[in-house]
Simulated scan of single mutants.
Amino acid sequence: MTDIVTASMIVIGDEILSGRTKDRNIGHLADIMTAIGIDLKEVRIVADDEDAIVEAVNGLRVRYTYVFTSGGIGPTHDDITADSIARAFGVPCEYDARAYAMLEANYAARGMEYTDARKRMARMPLGAEHIVNPVSTAPGFRVENVHVMAGVPAVFQAMLDNVVPTLTTGTRLLSTAIRSPFGEGAIGTPLGEIQKAHPDTIIGSYPKYQDGRFWTELVVRARSPEALEAGRAAVQAMLDGLKAQS
């Protein structure tokens, strides 16, 4: 029986929407999810706005197996993700004793003042579980199926490395690519018919331009080798038929 595990992502931050910061976490999460057999189905980018974050979290956590967030758990006034997640789950956002002590010790060891701003990074929804941060100590956290992580790519990636072993994974998608000399306009209709005839596959069409010529990369994906081969063979037969006619 095929196990399908799904995920979504919420990227939080005005700096992403304004273009000041270029997101690097979506691609990394997509790569990791694909590698472990989890289908990343949806990504939302939202502003530093509590209502928007709450709406996204509550909408996605009931739709997908996992939700991952990035951004908004730092020390500044606009880092409101912890408060927003707490509101989404209807629990208070409080200083977590273990996180508070970890950060206090970290700053003491570095000879730095443990300011109120830095203490903010120890706040999380009541009952949340830590996500270890081996880069800069301040932990992320998990509430039910929502994993809340930093926006800094190096920290996000390190946190995700610690999350992955805790996830239930599904059956990995297999894939194969076929080069088509025809444009999408010529193959769109027969490709749609092949997709309908092979519902256990996912067929993607990606226009390319290389060496002054247009062509199309067709990618067939499936969870079983048999379905993959059946879809691939049908696509190849369609292309061979078009070549014979040209």
Rank of each mutant, 00 (worst) to 15 (best):
K208E: 15
T171E: 15
D3E: 14
Y107S: 06
W215A: 13
I10K: 01
G127P: 02
G188K: 05
G90V: 07
D14M: 04
G90C: 10
I73P: 07
V135P: 02
R98M: 11
T201N: 06
S18E: 09
A117G: 08
A47C: 01
A101F: 04
A122I: 06
K22E: 15
E94S: 03
D240Q: 11
I194V: 09
V219P: 04
H130T: 03
A82G: 08
A99E: 03
A56T: 04
S84C: 09
L40C: 07
K41M: 14
V62L: 11
A158P: 09
L126M: 14
H130D: 08
L126I: 14
M238G: 04
E50P: 00
G27F: 08
V54P: 00
P165W: 07
D211N: 15
A99F: 01
H28G: 06
R213E: 15
S136C: 05
R213Y: 05
I80V: 13
V5W: 00
S246P: 01
R24T: 14
R87K: 13
P139A: 09
R142I: 08
R110V: 04
E184G: 05
D14K: 03
P125E: 11
T2H: 11
M238F: 01
G192Q: 08
H147P: 06
D39G: 04
I16C: 07
E42F: 00
C93S: 08
F141V: 05
V155Q: 09
P181I: 03
D3I: 14
R123W: 05
M9Q: 13
R179M: 11
I202G: 10
L173I: 00
R118L: 11
I38A: 01
A7K: 02
G151V: 07
L160D: 09
P75M: 05
E184T: 06
V219T: 13
V62I: 12
